[in-house]
Write a protein that binds this DNA or RNA. Structure first.
Lengths: 234, 234
DNA sequence: CGCCCGTTTGAAACAAATCAAGTCTCGTGG
DNA sequence: CCACGAGACTTGATTTGTTTCAAACGGGCG
């Protein structure tokens, strides 16, 4: 995982420090709830599998804040502020690397570069969230869905999880997940997907997304292409 | 400013360090653009006045990501990642305290507690953004507006900028600003405000917001009350 | 006084939500 | 091996919240 260029290079000492605060590595099944909103959160790295962060309103409405793919950090803001502001659940089965409670303090004390890495991690998350705010506040259904797919495809590409030799990637989401992430209803997601399919932009069947017309998808998403930041992999 | 309990207490040495990286204090007029999206951003504290962070889509649609009130930090993620992901403009005239380029590195090197403070700052921003994502993705017009007003009122209360002895606060926003923050159109914001007024929940005239029925507003906003985190004031 | 910006009002059009069946797929158990 | 059931997906009709367009109103300011 660490070989992908999007992850920041660490020195040998830094890596051994990370190894010291690593507590356990555990497999989690499909659908497992790995973080509960409001409870104290452990810092983890999702090593394998997909998950999603979500927030539930009192009346049951659900908003998916972000999807997590291998290499993403779970519970950073929970570890900083002491308790999680959202819940996290697995989409597929997967593997989690969990870190000690005192990880952040330890890393910050040991080496000020970790401070920069961790801040960069948080800043990248802020940026992703801002893009989602723009999508939800000002974009149409088709733009939101195009944006979501483009984002996921890019992130999978960066960690080498796309299908080699094709513009395809796994996508273990139901239409309900897409709906809850884009602020739409499942019915409308379905209609919009039909449209994207019949326009020949993409196809989506089973758990495989294939993008047939990447430039068109990008155009539909109304995104100003931004270079992905290098980030820390714990 | 520093006396408000929501700001973290700093030791004498920490405060003198902050004073060392402080570069200038400047007045800015109403409507001034203080950060341009994409350009390298300076770290600043908004010391007086109101501002807003926003993102423009290529076709001119605008999404306001957040409003800034005295004590809020401008350009943290810009300072971390090297360039701003959004623009910032003043709503009123105000005063800005600007910090040196190397501020973050200096603070991190000097004292690992600053690392924790800065991370907490970023985490709080993440949390605010998540709440906005939920509002835009899953809440109705009236809920979004109630949420926005409640949030601003709470933040002003924490810095002592509400009207003493009344549940009122200044609100130097046009209905267009409210629309661009809540993902609605100005017309619909107007209609929704009428409804809130005629229901006796609040009144809003000139640049003054008065909340007549705080519990009802909270209910309308569908927010699970969360204690505001203490944070760093630079 | 008149102009400009923001607000208010109204009517018509639209995107998306809601409600309601119906179909497909896949895993399970008989 | 096939019948069954549950979850996901599809389709269609209808309703609603919100947008769009347009015009009038108001108040602060030069």
């Amino acid at each position: 995982m660490r070989i992908h260029p999007q992850f920041r290079r660490l020195t040998v000492e830094q890596r051994s420090l990370v190894a010291q605060v690593l507590r356990s590595q555990k497999s989690v099944p499909e659908r497992a709830e790995i973080v509960e909103a409001g409870s104290p959160a452990t810092l983890c790295t999702l090593y394998e599998g997909w998950a999603y962060r979500y927030i539930l309103l009192p009346d049951g409405r659900r908003q998916i804040v972000d999807f997590l793919v291998p290499g993403d950090t779970v519970g950073l803001d929970g570890a900083i502020l002491g308790h999680a502001g959202y819940s996290v659940a697995m989409l597929t089965s997967g593997v989690l690397c969990c870190f000690a409670q005192e990880t952040l303090t330890t890393l910050l004390k040991a080496n000020h570069e970790f401070g920069e890495h961790l801040l960069a991690m948080a800043a990248a998350e802020i940026r992703t969230l801002e893009q989602r705010v723009v999508a939800l506040g000002r974009k149409s259904a088709i733009e939101r869905i195009a944006h979501q797919f483009l984002d996921l495809y890019r992130r999978l590409e960066a960690i080498g999880k796309t299908v080699p030799g094709a513009t395809s990637c796994p996508l273990p989401l139901t239409q309900r997940h897409i709906a809850d992430a884009t602020g739409l209803t499942p019915t409308h997601v379905n209609n919009t997907l039909q449209q994207l399919r019949s326009d020949g932009v993409l196809s989506l069947s089973g758990r495989l997304l294939t993008i047939h017309d990447l430039p068109r998808l990008q155009e539909l998403a109304s995104v100003t292409a931004r270079a992905p930041e290098t980030r820390l992999l714990l």
